[in-house]
């Protein structure tokens, strides 16, 4: 088998395991919806109001951030608890392929959660000018978050307080990603010209590329026993 077929095999394994139970994704999606509802109370977001335009992007990204973090944490620690990560490491598969497979499957799960959250957001708050331009930004943000998240979730899973450790490690490091994501989403909400936020776009792409490469190189040091 080649490097790529290893990656595909890991993605297939993760998707199959999740489809059998829908344990993690159902909880994560539900959690994202709860976050939206809580923000309604925190900010008194009126349907179709001006606040939605200014606060909406932040609300959306906080929902994405919290929910994807829970998904990331579970996807790695579940493997560890069941001993399947050990099994995976015993197979003659390159550590890099395991990393990329995990990133890809997390990317898929997170994207599904985000798509549902986005639809719920539109239904619940009815923003007046939400363009489809947000989709590429969300995809880029999700990719970066999965890239750094899989590595840090593996680190957190090896500590005594993994549930606390993952956000403590993940959020400070990914602040550039969130700030760029919120900037670009607001740009799409307000239908401003793209050139206003070209800097944020560059930052998002740079974050994805840098952390995919760096985490790919560092992953083997985190999982080796």
């Amino acid at each position: 088998m080649t490097f790529f077929s290893h990656i595909i095999a890991i993605i297939r394994k993760d998707l199959l395991a999740e489809l059998r139970t829908i344990e993690i994704s159902s909880a994560v999606i539900f959690f994202a919806l709860i976050v939206l509802v809580i923000f309604n109370f925190a900010f008194e977001l009126q349907v179709g109001s001006q606040e939605i335009q200014t606060l909406g992007p932040g609300v959306l990204w906080v929902a994405f951030a919290f929910s994807s973090m829970i998904g990331l944490g579970r996807s790695i620690s579940a493997e560890k608890d069941k001993g399947s990560l050990e099994g995976l490491l015993l197979t003659p598969v390159d550590r890099g392929a395991i990393y990329l497979g995990k990133v890809a499957s997390n990317f898929i799960f997170t994207s599904i959660m985000e798509a549902i959250t986005l639809v719920a957001f539109v239904i619940l708050f009815n923003p007046t000018s939400l363009s489809l331009a947000v989709i590429p930004y969300i995809i880029l943000g999700t990719l970066g978050l999965s890239a750094i998240g899989v590595l840090l979730a593996a680190v957190a899973a090896g500590t005594l307080i993994r549930e606390v450790m993952l956000p403590v490690l993940l959020f400070p490091v990914s602040i550039p990603l969130f700030s760029a994501g919120v900037n670009l989403t607001r740009n799409a909400f307000e239908s401003r010209p793209f050139s206003d936020d070209a800097g944020s776009f560059g930052l998002l792409v740079a974050f994805d590329v840098i952390f995919l490469v760096v985490a790919f190189l560092l992953f083997e040091y985190v999982v080796e026993e």
């Binding site: 490091v173 550039p176 700030s179 760029a180 985490a215």
Partner: peptide
């Protein structure tokens, strides 16, 4: 990871000022 993040954090704070 933290050291790699330093330039990104600085860039994002500058972009945010926009």
């Amino acid at each position: 990871i933290g050291a790699v993040d330093v330039p990104l954090v600085i860039a994002s704070a500058r972009v945010w000022r926009g």
